[in-house]
Design a binder for these strands. Structure first.
Length: 134
DNA sequence: GCCAACGTTGGC
DNA sequence: GCCAACGTTGGC
């Protein structure tokens, strides 16, 4: 079981949209590192959903329901998607500022590689963020 | 194959 | 709205 963070601009697609849809294809990823992370995602892995730009906070968790396959919005065969469904909304969102203020979270990818849209997170860090959300 | 130019992302 | 960071593109 692995843990991930998926970043999205809530103006484009928010966690609320995911809840409303019940499931979604995480498409439109056009970055090789992010793609490689998508490819490493396994069914039942857990991903935190992070709202970038306007909110800058982690808002909920999701579950991988289908492992990677070709992105239907891409005809070059280069890019892939996974399917996820919502798991649970955080009782309290965890902001980027809060994450940065926690010493053990200060060097996670979310902070260090702010432009990467799909990134792994260790269980320890995942648990810490969940703890901060309750 | 190098690197300058350019476009995009995302925090502030 | 600005700008730093970074990835990609294209000329050489």
């Amino acid at each position: 079981m692995n843990y991930w963070i998926l970043k999205t601009e809530p103006g484009a697609y928010s966690y609320g949209d995911l809840v409303k849809d019940g499931k979604t294809l995480w498409d439109g990823v056009r970055n090789y590192q992010a793609r490689n992370n998508l490819k490493a995602m396994k069914k039942n892995d857990i991903a935190l959903i992070y709202h970038s730009v306007t909110d800058k906070e982690v808002v909920g968790t999701s579950v991988v329901t289908k492992e990677h396959f070709q992105d239907p919005t891409d005809n070059t065969g280069t890019w892939v998607v996974v399917e996820i469904k919502p798991k649970s909304k955080l009782k309290k969102t965890v902001s980027l500022a809060e994450i940065k203020s926690e010493k053990i979270l200060s060097d996670i990818s979310l902070v260090k590689h702010s432009r990467l849209s799909v990134m792994p997170i260790t269980k320890k860090h995942f648990d810490k963020i969940l703890k901060m959300s309750s």
